[in-house]
Design a protein around this nucleic acid. Structure first.
Lengths: 338, 338
DNA sequence: GGCCGTGATGTAAGCGCTTACAATTCGCTT
DNA sequence: AAGCGAATTGTAAGCGCTTACATCACGGCC
């Protein structure tokens, strides 16, 4: 069915080795035969067989990304950065989705199938015993995105610092009675953001009331969506709590919360000031003050780390931590002079 | 390095054929040997080699999706639907991105490498001569998503109808002087939406003024983003045009436009009513009236079509067209009684 | 004129798996 | 007790490619 190097070899009157050399840019082929082979190959529409190639070469040129949820804008943005960077190479990207933590192991298993991928990118999944063991035994290069483990290259944002900045900023704009909408209790990034926020407050003598913290009860990846934000905010209001500031652990939650506030006729930023996290493209267009994570840069950098590890497996582990930057918009007021 | 069936065979005292049979659920293996082989395989941590397998089997279990832009929420949602459906099978998903039309061919070339993928999903790319020829010569199953060609299975939304519905609805809520924000001139879906909208208007005796149509001048995939909407709307306003209704060819454009309107102190829906297209999750939280495309369903269905074509290559071409449904929210007014 | 180094090409042995076909075993039948 | 078929297992030939090694032709050298 398909054209093989045998066909080309026969038609061009050379051996298969020569054909193979031509397609591998091996210099030990004369210009004339190279041209002849290419001509025949073009005419026949020859395409090297991907599997045969990687089997013979003992290596693939595909990498796998294990992502909680493609339709989460954060991941989409990071993947975009990754893709753009990859497009300059001849690598292909395999995408697995693992909406719950339990599924991560299974998907990882697939991605780790021998000969499947040259490297793996694991998104937002805490590497615990089971996983670690699995990763260890197949010595495939791995880079962690949006999570951390001492033994693996990783790329993440300083979430604690982000929380602190949010706290400082909110306080500086006059907030005295803040609330927090946290995505879900199992999310490491969300926890860190909360911790940082708390610390930031307490450093200035403000404490976060326990009933001012709403933790979405959804699973692993969940809670990072508009609906969770909407529901959490609604719950807060229904409990009769009226904070004057709000820190949401993601932009989408903040946007959900904003809608809930609108329903309750609370004005932003007059009655309540809001700050999100991520700086999705949309944030700019709803005027949301937020902490930017350089998402597509994170993706690009993740790919670079992976390449580095692939070429030099023994190099020391590298952790890249980006500092989140504050993007003030109109859901918060002007900073009051100090 | 890796464990092979030879290792297993030796350790279990059987032949490689038997090991292979065990891993292929071939019934012609006794229960006892099967158990023995499995035990050894588990202990050694055996993993079949993906490339070797697909080479020997003469088939892969991966499909390729060629997508203009991962960070476009529409594609992210469709891919999610696709993934969810795929997760029930043992197929893997390879994602290629082709931000410009010129790049589609190149990416397709990669996806079409012999042995690379069992099927290809092409997103929003008009199939023209070059492409068609290429697809024809490699007889890999293809399904088109968000575009149409008589020769290939496809899945799309009735964009013309969507435009009509938008027009009808806007008129029914009292709009008399509508404007349109169109994503870009090369986008087939956007053109159809515009056509439908025009038809819908003229059927009721309203015509779309030429200067009330702003076409974003960005390339192929572009124009489908907030910024384009913002800029187009700003251009409209700066030209001194004050429409009382707005149809944007996508939700994100509508959201960009809303921000521009806010800057100009125009109230929605009092001064201007807005309708978008897609019904992204976010639309609900900004109160955007829009036309829903069942995005994740489209992805799921696309996968089914592809499977169908893979198992029965000669079956007749199927075109699935979803009807967009109107989702009235608060960027439009109540319908006036007829 | 024989020898040798060089560059171009060919031969053949894998890469790890599947699978047609052959071989073997074993329990029954006659 | 020999024979037979079914069930199980083994042998070996690929799948399409890469690549180490062998071969060959050729020109220059002493």
């Amino acid at each position: 069915m398909g054209i093989t190097i045998y066909d080309i070899a026969e038609a061009a009157g050379v051996s298969i080795a020569t054909v193979s050399r031509v397609f591998n840019d091996n210099p030990r082929v004369s210009e004339s035969t190279r041209a002849a082979v290419m001509e025949v190959a073009d005419k026949l529409g020859y395409q090297p067989h991907a599997s045969a190639r990687s089997l013979a070469r003992q290596q693939t040129e595909t990498i796998s990304a294990i992502v909680p949820m493609l339709s989460n804008y954060f991941y989409a943005e990071v993947l975009k950065g990754l893709q753009d960077r990859m497009a300059e190479t001849s690598f292909d990207l395999l995408v697995y989705s693992a909406p719950t933590l339990d599924e991560v192991e299974g998907q990882l298993e697939k991605a780790l199938h021998r000969g499947r991928s040259a490297g793996v990118m694991l998104f937002s999944a805490p590497v615990r015993d089971g996983l670690e063991q699995r990763l260890q035994q197949s010595d495939i290069p791995v880079v962690l995105v949006d999570c951390y483990h001492p033994a693996y290259d990783s790329i993440s944002t300083d979430n604690r610092r982000g929380g602190e900045i949010a706290a400082d900023y909110l306080l500086s704009t006059g907030v005295r009675n803040p609330a927090v909408l946290m995505a879900n209790p199992h999310s490491v990034p969300a926890s860190h953001r909360l911790e940082g926020f708390r610390d930031g407050l307490s450093r200035q003598g403000v404490i976060l009331e326990e009933d001012h913290l709403i933790v979405s009860s959804m699973g692993y990846h969940d809670g990072f969506n508009e609906q969770a934000g909407y529901e959490s905010m609604t719950a807060l209001l229904e409990a009769g709590i009226k904070p004057d500031g709000l820190f949401a652990t993601s932009d989408v939650q903040a946007i959900g919360a904003m809608e809930a506030l609108r329903h309750s006729n609370m004005n932003i930023p007059e009655h309540i000031q809001i700050i999100g996290f991520d700086d999705l493209p949309i944030a700019r267009y709803v005027g949301l003050t937020t902490l930017r994570q350089p998402m597509s840069e994170m993706g690009a950098r993740a790919f670079e780390l992976l390449m580095e590890r692939m070429t030099r497996p023994a190099s020391t582990v590298a952790h890249t931590v980006f500092a989140p930057t504050l993007i003030p918009r109109t859901t918060t007021r002007e900073q009051v002079a100090v």
